[in-house]
């Protein structure tokens, strides 16, 4: 597989190093720009890989990863040239995580900042409890995506499964395909110019070309469940 890392990349080979050793190398790297490249070979579904990074370096993982890849990422640009397991980029603070395959449940759960791009599909609860990060999924998303999402944005180029945006707070959801059903307190909203700008910016950042913001619908909170009231009992 051709990679963006090129020949000058530093190699971290999980066929030779343990997870702890590999993460120690990645975490100790004090890069000053994303031009610092590290290629991770033979990930073989390793869990908790490239988590806790705290510097602007570029990590390219050559294969599939297990749970919590790039968890709590700060500053780093992590590319997974395969599929990623549960909780990829969970609680990400900043930086960018780009998965070239599919992702499992709870992608970018509780993430505060940064951008997660998924070339394939995302399973259930994508963006659960999101706290400010942005997510672009080029395929479909599973049920209960953006459950209790507080801030940030999920862009879905494909379809969304049932109960999208259940109990959502101030986060935004853009869907280009079909929505099977909306969750409690999630409603469709108008798209204003500023929303189109936000969407266009995220599409560009995630490498989507030839897609117009007008193709999307926007969803967000009806703000009816923000306070505990008797008239809401039916939805509890």
């Amino acid at each position: 597989m051709t990679t963006a890392a090129g020949d000058n990349a530093r190699i971290v080979d999980l066929a030779k190093l343990s997870r702890r050793e590999a993460n120690t190398v990645l975490q100790s790297y004090n890069g000053t720009s994303n031009s610092t490249l590290i290629r991770v070979l033979n990930p073989a579904g390793t869990h908790a890989l490239a988590c806790g990074l705290d510097a602007p370096l570029a990590v390219e993982i050559d294969g599939h990863t297990g749970y919590y890849c790039a968890g709590m990422n700060k500053h780093a640009n992590v590319a997974v040239l395969g599929n990623a397991g549960q909780g990829v980029a969970e609680n990400m603070m900043s930086g960018r995580v780009h998965v070239h395959g599919n992702v499992s449940q709870s992608a970018a759960a509780t993430a505060h900042g940064g951008l997660l791009v998924v070339e394939g599909n995302a399973a259930a609860r994508c963006g659960i409890s999101l706290k400010g990060a942005d997510i672009v999924v080029k395929g479909n998303v599973g049920h209960m995506s953006m459950f209790m999402a507080q801030a940030g944005c999920l862009v879905i180029l494909g379809d969304a499964d049932e109960a999208l945006g259940d109990s959502i707070y101030e986060a935004a959801i853009y869907v280009r395909g079909r929505v099977k059903s909306l969750g409690a307190d999630c409603v469709e909203k108008e798209i204003a110019d500023r929303h189109c700008d936000q969407l266009a910016s995220l599409l560009e950042a995630s490498g989507c070309s030839g897609i117009d913001a007008s193709e999307f619908r926007r969803f967000g909170s009806a703000r009816e469940l923000y306070n505990f009231k008797q008239e809401n009992i039916g939805v509890y």
Binding site: A48, G52, Q86, A109, M148
Partner: peptide
């Protein structure tokens, strides 16, 4: 607004997942 905190964690379910979650927390904190 009334702030609800979920009763389950957002990215793990059950002790098998939790073992991996703890592994991640340990990796992040050396």
């Amino acid at each position: 607004i009334d702030q609800r905190s979920a009763c389950r964690h957002p990215d793990w379910t059950g002790p098998d997942d939790l073992a991996i979650k703890i592994l991640e927390l340990r990796e992040i904190t050396n």
